[in-house]
Design a protein around this nucleic acid. Structure first.
Lengths: 243, 243
DNA sequence: CTAATAAATTCACCTGTATGTACGATTGAA
DNA sequence: TTCAATCGTACATACAGGTGAATTTATTAG
């Protein structure tokens, strides 16, 4: 069951991150289609807790820096080493596509750092973006770092859905794809999950952490270049990790 | 009316900022005394939205960097100029007390940047901390920047509570205190709101924004030094603002 | 000024949701 | 292996809390 008021808090935060200016109760209520009274309750709750304030009289609410303070405290634990950002920035520049660092989360894979392509048509993904671990190149690059036992216990929880006609819909199909990935030296996917989207990924273990890097973009741009992209990817990883 | 699940989201964020490591569902449920099922709903909601993930199998949940990304986007709007941090850091070092930058929020004043005293006995205040605008030195340093009309419309909303025996409990009392503050050149309060707490504050207008700086600590340390602290405060402001 | 309009706030009722309970999965001990 | 203990997940039900309507407060127009 989804907790609606929890989602609303997140949406308010995302709203302010987008509009980047104070907003009145009425504006927020109208934007989300929420009743004024409910919006009132939510905004006063957040304000009372010190997460929203009214910078100028009648100009509306805006988040306090408290979000930043807490987010920093949380993020400074096990931060990614500095070179990963340089890595994905460089890779995005070289390939012209969106590049991300990905971490496991149960049966899903989560984007924990992203540099988006500058192209007009691009893979639009944000930090926090989640994709099925078995049906994406980035996810399978994580699975390659799991033991067979660990993979098996994951497989039991996976709900094999046919997102697209190339989606692997059985344990065997996934295992087969993993074997193929090992042979070719990198993971790939063609719209296994997202329509028109192709990805090339490799494992990126950092200390104890099992991560992966993925270069992803529209199938027609990636399609016949997966091998070349994989080489770029692997060389970049070697180059930056060495430092 | 307080929105409980909104508060719960904030508490989870604060919890992780405190413990700085992944926590399992059971740990979180026990810590807050929440039912497992409710905790389950909340955690899966936050995870589905990309705000929590499970870095390692069975090690529990942890916030994703998405919080940081959004908090940064929100905070980079109208950031405080760099010198304010230097100012409060220097002031805290010079006075040995907690120093904060404060902004108005309706009838309350909100701490938007804080450097805490290193002393064992100190004013423990965090960013987001809220105090009544009329019953604190920092708040009155904000009121000094309001026009009479603006103050009057605020007064109508204030619920005059006797927090302590020195609390001003009428419009006249507040206005009188403001006049005295003007004469002496700075604002002060002795436990008007928080027991045992004394504060010395001055207005700090920055561009269009009405802010204040406050030096606050236990009455017995601040008590007879308010004038000296005020001088330190004003000189520091001049020094840092000049740059 | 006064009226009209819009925004913010309050409140009681009824609905959407938090939770008690039960079940299944996982882990560790023997 | 089996068993016990713990943890995670599903679901129906009672009731906490979201919402529509009314009231108050603020703002704009004339």
């Amino acid at each position: 069951m989804i907790v609606r008021q929890a989602v609303n808090v997140l949406e308010i935060l995302e709203y302010f991150a987008r509009v980047k200016k104070p907003a009145t109760l009425a504006e927020i209520a109208d934007h989300f289609g929420w009743p004024r009274s409910s919006t009132f309750n939510l905004l006063t709750t957040l304000a009372e807790k010190g997460y929203l304030y009214e910078p100028r009289p009648r100009a509306g609410y805006y988040p306090t820096p408290r979000w930043l303070v807490l987010a920093r405290e949380v993020a400074e634990v096990e931060p990614l080493p500095g070179w990963t950002r340089a890595l994905i920035t460089a890779l995005s520049a070289e390939t012209g596509e969106t590049v991300a660092i990905v971490a496991p989360s149960g049966v899903m894979a989560v984007f924990i750092d992203v540099v988006e392509s500058a192209a007009a048509i691009r893979y639009f993904a944000k930090v926090g973006h989640r994709v099925p671990i078995h049906a994406t190149s980035s996810g399978r690059a994580l699975l390659l770092q799991y033991s067979k036992d660990e993979r098996d216990s994951l497989y039991r929880k996976i709900e094999f859905k046919q997102y697209n006609h190339t989606t692997p819909i059985s344990i065997d199909a996934v295992e087969a794809e993993l074997r193929k990935s090992l042979e070719r030296g990198y993971c790939q996917s063609f719209a296994d999950y997202s329509r028109d989207l192709a990805g090339v990924a490799v494992p990126l273990p950092i200390g104890e952490r099992r991560l992966s890097v993925v270069v992803a973009g529209p199938e027609y741009r990636i399609g016949d270049k997966t091998a070349a992209i994989a080489v770029t990817l692997q060389q970049a990883v070697e180059r930056f990790r060495a430092k």
